[in-house]
Simulated assay, not measured.
Amino acid sequence: MKYGREVTFSIPEASILLNVLLRMNRWDRKEYHKALCWSVRAALESEGYKRLSPFKQCKIEIDRYSSALGDWDGVMGGLKPLFDTLVVCTKTNPLGLGVIEDDNPNCIIECPAIRQHKSTRKAASTVVTITEILEA
């Protein structure tokens, strides 16, 4: 594989778990998504990310630091708002930041690599690394 640009950023909270997300009402879920969008935008700006054309194909690695380790299905399902924040802004997804073209298998060509790490509650964070793939 031939790799291109790479974007790494960290948000100051562990990614939400699917059970927590499903128990939110739709208004709280919408507010959470807005807050997450602003956190990701601030993290990208602090890393010096300049808005370029979105990655057409990429791979994603996520390191989740939290005081308790979650079930794998809960961690993966809870990443949906994060992926929706990374895609291109559309009418149905107005909170997209345009880092990647889409969150389907044509764009993210392999299942995102997720690693969980035990940390203190104060040190909770989510580190995301997105690597552009030029040739598969």
Rank of each mutant, 00 (worst) to 15 (best):
E101L: 15
I130L: 08
W27E: 13
Q116I: 09
D102F: 06
V128F: 01
S66I: 01
H117T: 06
V75E: 00
F55I: 01
S125R: 15
S39M: 12
V75P: 00
P54Q: 02
G4W: 03
R23W: 02
S46H: 02
A43L: 03
K59F: 04
Y65W: 13
N104A: 10
I114Q: 01
L52A: 13
G70D: 06
L36G: 01
D103R: 10
I130S: 07
Y3A: 01
R26Q: 11
L79P: 04
F9I: 02
R64Y: 05
G4Q: 10
L17C: 06
R29S: 08
I109F: 05
L22N: 14
L36R: 02
K34I: 11
L95Q: 12
P54C: 02
K91A: 15
N106H: 10
C111S: 12
V7T: 09
A136S: 02
W72C: 01
V127T: 15
V20I: 07
N93A: 14
K50Q: 08
L86P: 03
C89D: 07
E135I: 11
H117Y: 15
N106G: 06
C111L: 13
S119A: 15
N25T: 01
C58W: 04
D63I: 07
Y49D: 00
A136T: 00
F83E: 01
T8S: 12
S125M: 13
N25C: 03
E31M: 13
I133C: 14
K2Y: 12
R41E: 09
I60R: 00
N25Q: 01
M24N: 02
R5T: 06
N106Y: 06
L22M: 10
K30T: 13
W72L: 08
G98F: 12
V87F: 07
E101I: 08
K80F: 09
V127P: 01
F55D: 03
A113Q: 07
K122G: 02
W72F: 08
A35R: 15
P81I: 14
W38G: 06
K2L: 15
T129E: 00
L44N: 04
L36W: 04
W27Q: 11
R64I: 15
C37E: 07
P81T: 14
S67R: 11
G70K: 03
D84Q: 13
P12F: 04
V99W: 12
L36N: 03
A113S: 09
C111E: 15
K118G: 00
K118F: 09
E61I: 10
S125D: 02
H33M: 05
L95V: 03
Y65T: 10
C89A: 03
R26D: 11
Q116H: 08
Q57T: 15
A14I: 00
S39A: 14
M76T: 13
V7L: 11
I114N: 01
G70N: 04
I114K: 02
P12S: 13
W27V: 15
I62W: 08
F55L: 08
T129C: 08
L79T: 09
P54W: 02
P81V: 13
G48E: 06
S67Y: 11
I108C: 13
Y49V: 08
N104D: 15
T90I: 00
R29Q: 11
C107L: 12
T92V: 11
N104Q: 05
E101V: 11
P12I: 10
K80Y: 12
R51Y: 07
E45V: 02
L97K: 08
